[in-house]
Design a protein around this nucleic acid. Structure first.
Length: 423
RNA sequence: GGAGAAAUGGCAGAGUGGUCGAAUGCGGCAGUCUUGAAAACUGUUGAGGGUCACACCUCCGGGGGUUCGAAUCCCUCUUUCUCCGCCA
């Protein structure tokens, strides 16, 4: 959520930046400023009325103590009108505040200047590419065939017990998955991230804090009876750990990592490219989250990108990094880098990580602040990234490491798996 | 799930209708003393809005109500603790 003060000062720049998302924000930003103006005026009037009312009440109190009940009762009558006024003003204030809030909820984050203009994923900018794409023989199979051939994942069983998009991992498939989770967590904690285990259901306030609500209501599974949401990513519970916090500046940065399953309804995304592990309703992911001083957040973002690179080098997977264009950028993000692994047997790139700086967009909703060296309270910057999302990494490994004799295990994972070959 | 108790500033903990935004202690910060430190003493120390700065407004778990006036009374929700039941 944007801050009204900033909108007031930077309106034209904001309109220009938001146009990179294909959004014409001029009208709505004007409206925001107008509603805010009304809100502030109403607040000032209300304060004035309350002030008078407080003064009178104090006088009445003193008169009663002195035993001058009659004078007190005379004053009482004067308060009636003030009460009515304050009630009306309070209603008007609430109305304006609510309207302002509603407007602000519809405005996405301001893209960073590095964000290229563009409509969709075709306009994303490739900024880095690394790793050798293996040449596979003509017998090479896509991962869902490999999963079947070696009995690693059973998609039909998942359909039976739950539904499509809820795979069942078996045997070496399950073990490889667990190995990846542990390896990722080890890698992240070695880089200084503190490991957390967090709840997999969150309340409404948490959904609002990180921006899933109200924007993406339909994308989360909702447990109606208890009004809780299944998390779509560990970002939600982990970032919300710091909701309503006022941190000391020397507590920054805060760096967290956590493994969770992720649940996504993926409403409306059926069709092509959803085979196998490419798109699921439940999948595993290890996430990294940082709370940063604003001066340091972009350096931190670069650091996260380097960290994810390092993991992919370990795994020896061919990958590229995209800087998302305005049209593809998430609602809450100011700058996002997507990592994609090349899936050789499918001959396509699969997104396996998304690393973003949200600047103060989430922090403003979260009321996540810190006391700076100058003694002032400021909103912190929040960042997060996948390190990494499991299913497509698994797909990439299965496909890129396949040989006529079986699937090799990346060297770095062998100690975690306890075997070096799936055959 | 049933019965009871509680929720106050960074922490502990007073405060049951009228200068209470809130005693006191601890902690934090500044100063005195000291070569330095500790101790002791003195002062200071919540957040948000508003203002050039004051004034002023709001906040004692959340929401609503009673009253001229609520931390204090009433309703409701949430959370915590104790006891009982159930259970991994």
């Amino acid at each position: 959520m944007l801050q009204v003060n900033n909108i007031r000062e930077n309106k034209d720049a904001y309109v220009k930046a938001l146009s990179k998302r294909g959004v014409d924000a001029n009208t709505i930003l004007e409206e925001v400023l107008q509603v805010d103006e009304t809100r502030r005026n109403t607040q000032a009037q209300l304060d004035e009325v309350l002030s008078q009312s407080n003064t009178l009440s104090k006088e009445i109190g003193m008169l009663f103590q002195k035993g001058e009940a009659q004078k007190a009762n005379e004053l009482k009558e004067q308060t009636t009108q003030l009460k009515e006024q304050s009630k009306t003003l309070q209603d008007q204030l609430n109305e304006a505040s609510e309207k302002l809030q509603q407007l602000l909820f519809t405005i996405p984050n301001i893209p960073n200047e590095l964000v290229p203009a563009g409509q969709d994923e075709n306009d994303n900018e490739e900024v880095f590419k690394e790793g050798d794409i293996p040449t596979l023989d003509s017998e090479a199979l896509p991962h869902w065939e490999l999963a079947k051939k070696y009995d690693l994942i059973d998609f039909e069983l998942g359909v039976k017990i739950t539904g499509a998009g809820f795979p069942v991992y078996k045997g070496k498939g399950a073990r490889l998955q667990r190995a990846l989770i542990t390896y990722f967590l080890d890698k992240n904690t070695a880089a200084g991230y503190t490991e957390y285990q967090v709840p997999h259901l969150v309340n409404e306030a948490s959904g609002f804090g990180t921006g899933q609500l109200p924007d993406k209501e339909g994308q989360m599974y909702h447990v109606g009876i208890d009004d809780l949401y299944l998390i779509p990513t560990a970002e939600v519970p982990v970032t919300n750990l710091f909701r309503d916090e006022l941190l000391a500046h020397n507590q920054l940065p805060i760096t967290c990592t956590g493994y969770t399953p992720c649940f996504r309804r993926e409403a409306g995304s059926y069709g092509a490219h959803v085979r196998g592990l490419n798109r699921l309703h439940q999948f595993d992911k290890v996430e990294i989250v940082r709370i940063e001083h604003p001066d340091n957040s972009y350096a931190a973002l670069d650091g996260m990108v380097e960290h994810v690179k390092d993991i992919l080098r370990d795994l020896k997977l061919p990958y590229r990094i995209l800087r998302l264009c305005g049209g593809d950028l998430g609602f809450t993000s100011a700058l996002t880098y997507d990592f994609e692994v090349f899936s050789t047997a499918q001959d396509r790139w699969l997104e396996i990580s998304s690393v973003s700086n949200f600047e103060t967009f989430q922090a403003n909703r979260l009321k996540l602040r810190f006391k700076d060296v100058d003694g002032k309270n400021k909103l912190a910057h929040t960042l997060n990234g996948s390190a990494l999302a499991l299913p497509r990494v698994l797909a990439g490994i299965l496909e890129n490491y396949q040989t006529p004799n079986g699937i090799k295990i990346p060297e770095v994972l062998i100690p975690y798996c306890g075997f070096d070959m799936i055959d």
